[in-house]
Write a protein that binds this DNA or RNA. Sequence first.
DNA 1: TAAGTGATCTCT
DNA 2: GAGATCACTTAA
Length: 175
Amino acid sequence: MEKGKIEQFWQKPAQVVAPALLGRWLCRRGRGGKVTRLRIIEVEAYCGPRDRASHAARGMTPRTRVMFGPPGVWYVYLCYGVHWMLNLVTGPQGYPSAVLVRGVEGVVGPGRLTRRLKIGKAFDGQACTSGAGLWIEGREETPMGWRRRRGPRIGVDYAGKYWAGKHYRWWLEAE
DNA sequence: TAAGTGATCTCT
DNA sequence: GAGATCACTTAA
């Protein structure tokens, strides 16, 4: 992703950015500068302070601070004391929203994904750039042999019928 | 199906 | 400080 572009796709609302991430490459620079590129195949959108499924629904806290900041930044937090969750903060600027990266090709599950790519707290608040060692490349795409799906988010029943029922999860399914 | 796990948040 | 909660995974 080029730096300095006037308009980055992640400046749009989370529910626009999320499906636009499908098919792009999640890139991680490992030890020795070796880069791993994995295609993003599952995402969820968390949309603003009114979204009761979002951490931002209860206002800004030390943990959720980066969600309230500029887009194009990683929001990483620990879930259930074990699993790191990887999110990309989206726009509009200052509007707390993010996209959870739930799966890439070959690694399904948000906790497995971060474990595989060695992603932890260190990336929280870091920009999504190659310089940071974790970034996104490529274009939105539905590759041959895959089809696009959409449905409700996972694990957010506590958010109430309205928000839990929102179809804010998008994924690619092998045909 | 349920336990593990520990940071985070909401009460005292 | 204590207690509840939690955007999950694994083993059974």
